[in-house]
């Protein structure tokens, strides 16, 4: 393998070729896939984790189990889990259908294990944050809500979830960043798209300085930018979905800001 590196200069040259941007295997196509996969996987994980977290926060059930599971999962290398599932699952998936221009025909046997790993990784931060958020809701506020005649659903929607929103959103953000990052690893599965494809394929072409490294670098930087943009988007979303009374933002006057809730999971 090559030891003298082409460097940023070759990245410039690579980026200058419109084909590397717009082509069917170009940066933008892969970015589109990356985004689509992220959205789908985070949505699926959220649909599992957030209702479960609300239920656990409410009932206090299963918290020890989920906490332990989340902790243990942190120790499991994503790549190992991915490859384990590919070797174990892929031979049993026979569907050859593709999905539009996101999934090539025949990609499904690899995409399913990859998506499964990502969902498994994305659930714990959302789950732990959601139940911690619901549990941290001032029990007097919830009590007063019931006492005012709210139904359990109304209590959850009008009081508990809004109060837990900073933590729920932090969990969603952690999970999203996790998925954006781990999708690059998931590209180790054959035929799975996303920006990781350029990185993994680039590694195979490392010998060819005009193909391998600049593509990897270009894709890598795009992933980083995507992650930073997503991070910023969540910060911005927080301004709209978190009540100032809960976040302590922009409230002046007596200067007593709302108590700061700390995020339990880090991105």
């Amino acid at each position: 393998m090559s030891s003298d590196l082409p460097g940023f200069a070759s990245l410039g040259r690579w980026l200058n070729d419109p084909d590397n941007w717009l082509g069917s295997g170009g940066l933008l196509a892969h970015l589109r896939e990356h985004l689509a996969f992220t959205v789908v996987i985070v949505l699926v994980a959220a649909l599992i984790a957030i209702p479960a977290g609300i239920w656990m926060g409410h009932t206090g059930k299963g918290i020890l189990l989920a906490g332990g599971f989340a902790n243990a999962l942190r120790a499991v290398p994503a790549l190992g889990l991915l490859i384990l599932l590919i070797v174990e699952l892929s031979p049993h998936i026979h569907s050859r259908t593709g999905v539009g221009n996101l999934l090539a025909p025949g990609a499904l046997p690899y995409f399913i294990p990859a998506a499964l790993v990502l969902v498994i990784l994305a659930v714990p931060p959302m789950l732990t944050n959601t139940y911690a958020g619901i549990q941290a809701v001032d029990p007097r506020a919830a009590d007063a809500a019931r006492g005012a005649g709210m139904s359990p659903l109304q209590v959850a929607l009008r009081v508990e979830i809004p109060c837990a929103m900073p933590l729920i959103l932090a969990g969603l953000r952690s999970a999203t960043l996790q998925v954006i990052a781990s999708l690059t690893v998931a590209a180790y599965a054959p035929l799975v798209g996303g920006l990781g494809r350029l990185i993994v394929d680039g590694q195979q072409n490392l010998i060819d300085p005009s193909l391998g490294y600049p593509a990897m670098l270009g894709a890598g930087i795009t992933v980083a930018v995507l992650a930073l943009v997503a991070d910023g988007a969540f910060a911005l979303a927080g301004r709209y979905v978190i009540s100032p009374g809960v976040s302590g933002r922009r409230i002046r006057g007596r200067g007593t800001a709302a108590p700061q809730q700390s995020t339990l999971t880090e991105s």
Binding site: D138, R140, A141, D143, A144, A145, R146, G147, A148, G149, R158, V159, P162, C163, M165, S243, G245, V246, A258
Partner: peptide, 17 residues
Amino acid sequence: RRGIGYVIQQAGLFPNY
């Protein structure tokens, strides 16, 4: 409960409202 007022210690106000 909607027909009975309820006040508790430290008010139990909804912080998000």
